[in-house]
Amino acid sequence: MRQGTRQGTGQGPTPPDRSEESPGRASRLAARDLTLAYEDRTVVDGLDLDVPDGRVTVIVGPNACGKSTTLRALGRLLRPRRGAVLLDGRELASIPTRRIARSLGLLPQAPVAPEAITVADLVARGRGPHQRWWRQWSEADEAAVADAMARTRVTDLAARPVDELSGGQRQRVWIAMALAQDTELLLLDEPTTYLDIAHQVEVLDLVRQLNHDRGRTVVMVLHDLNQAARYADHLVAMREGRIVAQGPPAETVTAELVREVFGLDSVVVPDPVTGSPLVVPGAPWQPPTESPADPTAVPVSTRKAGP
């Protein structure tokens, strides 16, 4: 697997390296020879992946490269055509659904809330995997929901219908529901989709804070390469169903990688705020420069016909 070194000009602060794992420590979530397909169309082919524990992993790549499909398989929403997803060394397919739901939370793309459901009720649904027929709602459930709402700053919205909220508020509520599920692994599929830049930063800062405060292992799919480089501990770049490169963003995001994965000429420089790689696309298209008119040329309308 190729790992690049950061290219660019100028100097900037180097962010702390949070990507190293304890020696000999196996990843709780991994994929081995993973092949995924929809009917006869293979989307992911022979993928091997180890998700670093306690870190934020971000998967990037062009449209239709298999990012979201891979995340769906990691969350057992898609059965592999070949290979396996492993959770604590066991194939997901062999683990009871309820046990998976207590270990792994998944927030899919553009989730839809039931009509007229309130914020508090939606967040409370995250406690479903912890319910039993002999043990329904408990003080532990109440505390988990209150904590999730406080961490995502949606407590004041508890009584409001979800469908009346802004895009950023709704996304925080969905993340609160995933947090209330109280899993150590959290999978987020494009959590910033349809959000403006301020709400994108708000959601990504929240994810980063949750990882730091609670030690949650997070896997996200993002479209924005610069956001991925800024927020990821471990970056995975995919193209055509395969991993092209993976590792810390500072070592992985290079102009060569951007060209190979996205087909885009660029310059990679240090982010002036974080020091993480910042991808600057090449010069935009401009109309061709017209040559000055020949001062000796005679306009066609003034030319005389004949001798």
Results as ranks from 00 to 15, higher is better:
residue 134 W to Y: 14
residue 81 R to W: 13
residue 269 V to P: 06
residue 91 E to V: 04
residue 158 A to V: 02
residue 270 P to R: 00
residue 72 R to Q: 13
residue 248 P to S: 07
residue 215 G to Q: 03
residue 266 S to I: 12
residue 276 S to N: 10
residue 1 M to P: 15
residue 261 V to M: 14
residue 80 P to M: 10
residue 177 M to Q: 04
residue 135 R to E: 15
residue 196 D to S: 11
residue 298 V to H: 07
residue 134 W to G: 05
residue 39 E to Y: 12
residue 301 S to E: 15
residue 299 P to V: 12
residue 3 Q to C: 05
residue 259 R to L: 15
residue 29 L to F: 12
residue 22 S to H: 14
residue 105 G to D: 01
residue 26 A to Q: 13
residue 293 A to E: 15
residue 147 D to F: 01
residue 208 R to I: 10
residue 218 V to H: 00
residue 181 Q to A: 09
residue 195 L to D: 10
residue 99 R to E: 08
residue 53 D to K: 00
residue 287 P to A: 04
residue 203 V to A: 06
residue 219 V to I: 07
residue 94 S to G: 09
residue 130 H to I: 02
residue 296 T to L: 14
residue 77 L to D: 12
residue 61 G to M: 13
residue 19 S to I: 09
residue 236 V to Y: 11
residue 267 V to N: 01
residue 233 D to V: 03
residue 302 T to C: 11
residue 193 T to L: 03
residue 231 Y to R: 04
residue 90 R to H: 09
residue 292 P to F: 06
residue 105 G to V: 00
residue 79 R to G: 15
residue 296 T to V: 14
residue 278 L to H: 03
residue 79 R to C: 13
residue 239 R to D: 11
residue 116 A to D: 10
residue 6 R to G: 05
residue 164 E to I: 01
residue 295 P to Q: 14
residue 33 D to T: 15
residue 17 D to F: 12
residue 44 V to T: 05
residue 252 T to G: 02
residue 13 P to R: 15
residue 259 R to G: 14
residue 103 S to Y: 01
residue 68 S to N: 09
residue 216 R to W: 03
residue 96 P to H: 02
residue 119 V to P: 06
residue 265 D to G: 12
residue 98 R to F: 04
residue 302 T to E: 13
residue 79 R to T: 10
residue 157 L to Y: 08
residue 282 G to L: 04
residue 219 V to R: 07
residue 24 G to Y: 15
residue 58 V to F: 00
residue 125 R to W: 05
